[in-house]
Design a protein around this nucleic acid. Structure first.
Lengths: 186, 186
DNA sequence: CATCATTTTCCAATATAAAGGAAATCCTGC
DNA sequence: GCAGGATTTCCTTTATATTGGAAAATGATG
């Protein structure tokens, strides 16, 4: 049963345009010729695995992302959620509060949170998906970051980025409440 | 920079043998010829995307499973950026400050910012890439959101989501400084 | 060890993916 | 509207992915 492969051209084009790359630029980045890129984007050819691989490396995306997204055109709305209705998770000791700011449907891709840590509070996490990276921005207070074997201190207004595909934690080592903004990118 | 594609032949063969399938059987399941399968498994050819796709369908696996363990491996570090070194953009009237929190290499994909708006200040943006959505979270103060033809008000701690592929703006209509987090998802 | 059945690899023919240069198209700024 | 450059698409050539059938290898049975 030969099956119809999904169209990945439009998706690739979308990624390329979002990054403001020309065919020429992507060609030299990936080692795939412009002509080939043009044909792939328009679904006029059936690229080779090596070609796709080089593309994913140049765009720094995972192969599976190529077959994923279909663009959906939603209705024109502004979705406002009152502060008290934002999903919130509190740790058992009550010292850590996590407000889930990213929409439910983006779960698994990029997610973002506001964290509130009382003095001594911590957010300890198991490894996320392979390749996941966390970006934390301290709004106020101070934060200690632990990722795997290593740790670092982030002052107010500072930003830290670290691997999240291994055990990691955020800890408030100061004596005031710490607020931070956390983005988990997969 | 053409890159070396990872060997996926041995992995495919492993899956096939585990399921006790002959090349013949897998061929008829997938619509890929036995000869081709044999060559793929021994890395003597560079299969087409359609071929791989049909294989994944026949074996009921995800395409990313074929490249098993070949995801990008970064060094184990924590990247800390002091608050004063985070890239910052100020509007001409000085009423709007934008701190770029997302890493440079994610430009064009998901980007995030901290916004500070003095009373009366505004962040007015041209349309981003098609399909782009913005998610704003008010840290303190209050915000008016305009997306295309429509507008909405977001209170402190509230969240708003709206299309960003048309002209849009954030405006501080209160009389105190407003801080917010803005995530642009493409 | 010989034989047959099964499975895999080799081979020649064909279809088509890939690259590079030429034509066409799309944009800006006059 | 008309240049000029930048960008994309088309065209031709070359390299190779894909296939079906033949040959080789494997493996079970007596």
């Amino acid at each position: 049963m030969p099956d119809e492969a999904p169209p990945l051209g439009p998706h690739i084009q979308q990624i390329r345009k979002r990054r403001k790359l020309t065919l020429e630029q992507l060609a030299s980045l990936s080692g795939v010729s412009r002509s080939m890129l043009s044909q792939i984007e328009r679904g006029q050819t059936n690229p080779t695995f090596a070609t796709l691989w080089n593309l994913t490396r140049a765009l720094n995306i995972d192969i599976s992302e190529l077959v994923g997204g279909q663009t959906s055109n939603r209705a024109q709305t502004i979705d406002v959620v009152g502060g008290h209705f934002v999903p919130e998770i509190r740790s058992e000791d009550g010292l850590c509060t996590l407000r889930i700011l990213s929409p439910a449907q983006s779960a698994g891709r990029t997610e973002w949170y506001e964290i509130r840590l009382a003095p001594g509070g911590a957010l300890v996490s198991d490894p996320h998906a392979k390749g996941a990276v966390e970006h934390v921005t301290v709004i106020e207070g101070e934060l200690e970051v632990v990722s795997g074997e290593i740790r670092a201190c982030v002052p107010a207004q500072g930003v830290a980025r670290y691997a999240a595909d291994l055990p990691h934690a955020l800890r408030n080592v100061s004596d005031t409440e710490t607020r931070a903004f956390l983005v988990v990118a997969s």
